[in-house]
């Protein structure tokens, strides 16, 4: 499907080294507009590092990352913020801002531009989409972990960018909200947004992603459609755990540890 769509990200043999440690090595990956790519892999496999390179936070030690046909490091912070939004793993707010204010911060890149006229509508829609409209007057610091995660996601949506990077958006969420968040991600992709998501739950990734990149010790061990990538042999090798891969009732693969 990548061929038909314009590329948001084109990363070529990206490597990240800090001192003697190699966090990411020789990773090449594309993310097209309208596509949801899941990054999976064991802890410390380099998923978050790769995401931060795509986000432009971190310069790769080797290789290049092109974003919207330009090196990601060449964009000014403002231009980048109008083109891609990032949900970090750890979302804290230092002072007791109200939820509405936190989501409004997602509109900051558009301040002073004609798009700012749509602020209220973008905020309201993002709040509704993430199921947090009832929390608008609460302070962020008073929310539960799951509520914080959803409000932070709403902030990312309010930014209205054509690329979205989500680092473990489901980590603090219950079953329903996990599904909800990925459904939101899915519908973003449906609307032409390029979405890259770091996930831990392989079955969840299989159900919602167009493509899955399995990372193993900094490298991409496999990249392709869920059905192609999620084989018992590969997962056992990467995770060191024997698994069953079953056909789910809706046809998507289900990954279960062999117990």
């Amino acid at each position: 499907m990548t061929g038909a769509l314009s590329l948001a990200y084109h990363a070529e043999s990206v490597g990240v080294r800090i001192g003697p440690a190699t966090l990411v090595e020789d990773v090449s990956i594309d993310v097209a507009h309208g596509e949801l790519v899941a990054l999976v892999g064991p802890n410390g496999a380099g998923k978050s590092t790769l995401l931060s390179v795509l986000a432009g936070d971190r310069s790769p030690s080797s290789g290049t990352v092109a974003f919207d046909d330009r090196d990601v490091r060449d964009w000014t912070p403002g231009d980048l913020a109008r083109r891609r939004a990032v949900l970090a793993q750890d979302n804290q707010v230092a002072f007791p801002f109200r939820v509405w204010e936190v989501v409004e911060m997602g509109r900051a890149p558009w301040q002073g531009l004609s798009e700012a006229d749509g602020d209220e509508e973008a905020i309201a829609q993002a709040l509704a989409t993430c199921d947090v409209a009832h929390l608008t007057e609460r302070t962020f610091t008073s929310l539960s972990g799951g509520e914080r995660a959803r409000v932070s996601l709403a902030r990312v949506l309010a930014q209205r960018t054509r690329a979205v990077l989500l680092d473990e958006p489901t980590a603090a969420l219950d079953l329903k909200h996990q599904e909800d968040v990925l459904r939101v991600a899915r519908s973003l992709a449906h609307d032409g947004v390029a979405v890259a998501v770091v996930l831990h739950d392989l079955s969840l990734a299989a159900a919602y992603a167009d493509r899955i990149a399995v990372m193993e010790r900094g490298r991409i061990a496999a990249l392709g459609s869920p059905a192609d990538v999620l084989t018992p042999a590969l997962i056992e090798r990467v995770y060191g755990l024997p698994v069953h891969v079953l056909d789910g009732p809706d046809g998507t693969p289900l990954v279960l540890p062999r117990r």
Binding site: D57, P77, R82, V93, F95, Q111
Partner: peptide, 20 residues
């Protein structure tokens, strides 16, 4: 003032929102 608001999100997220 408005930039200081963004800083409350942490410097990484503030950077993602275009703040230098």
């Amino acid at each position: 003032a408005r930039r200081y608001d963004l800083l409350a999100l942490g410097e990484r997220t503030a950077g993602h929102l275009g703040l230098r």
